[in-house]
Amino acid sequence: MSPKLGRWVRLFVDYAGLVAFLVTIAITGSAIAASWAVVAGSLAALAAGLVLEKRLAPMPLVTALFGVIFGGATLVFHDERIIKMKLTILDGGIALFLLTGALRGKNPLKALMGEAFHLPDPVVRTLTLRYALLFAALAIGNEVVWRTQSTRVWALYKFPGTVVLIFLFALSQTPLILKHAEEEPGTGPKP
Results as ranks from 00 to 15, higher is better:
S2N: 14
A16Q: 05
A111H: 04
A48Y: 06
H78A: 15
P191L: 14
G71E: 05
A181S: 15
L171N: 09
E183Q: 13
S2K: 10
L156E: 08
D14R: 03
M59G: 00
V163T: 12
A111G: 02
L138T: 02
F169Y: 11
I166W: 05
A33P: 00
M113T: 00
R130F: 08
G186Q: 02
R125F: 07
P175D: 11
P189H: 13
P185I: 00
L75W: 05
V124G: 03
K4L: 14
A181P: 05
V124I: 12
K179N: 14
T187H: 14
P60W: 03
I177Y: 07
A137I: 03
I83T: 09
R125M: 12
V13G: 04
S30R: 03
V164N: 13
D121A: 14
A155C: 04
Y15R: 03
P189K: 12
Y131A: 03
V123K: 09
A47L: 14
D14T: 02
L46C: 05
R125A: 12
S150D: 09
V9H: 10
F12E: 07
G141M: 06
I94D: 05
R7N: 15
S150E: 07
S35W: 04
P175H: 11
E53D: 09
E115C: 00
L103Q: 11
V164S: 12
S172D: 11
I27P: 00
D91L: 01
A111D: 14
A139P: 04
M1Q: 09
M1E: 10
P60K: 01
T126E: 15
A37T: 04
P120L: 10
R10L: 12
L171Q: 14
A73H: 08
V76G: 13
T74G: 10
V163P: 01
E53Y: 00
T148W: 07
P175M: 12
V145P: 03
T24C: 04
G114M: 00
A48L: 10
S150G: 06
K179H: 15
I32R: 08
V19A: 12
L178N: 14
T148H: 10
E184D: 10
E80W: 05
M59A: 08
S35V: 01
L134I: 02
K158A: 11
L96T: 11
G161S: 08
P122L: 10
I177A: 07
L46D: 05
G49C: 02
L46R: 01
L103K: 10
G101V: 03
G29C: 06
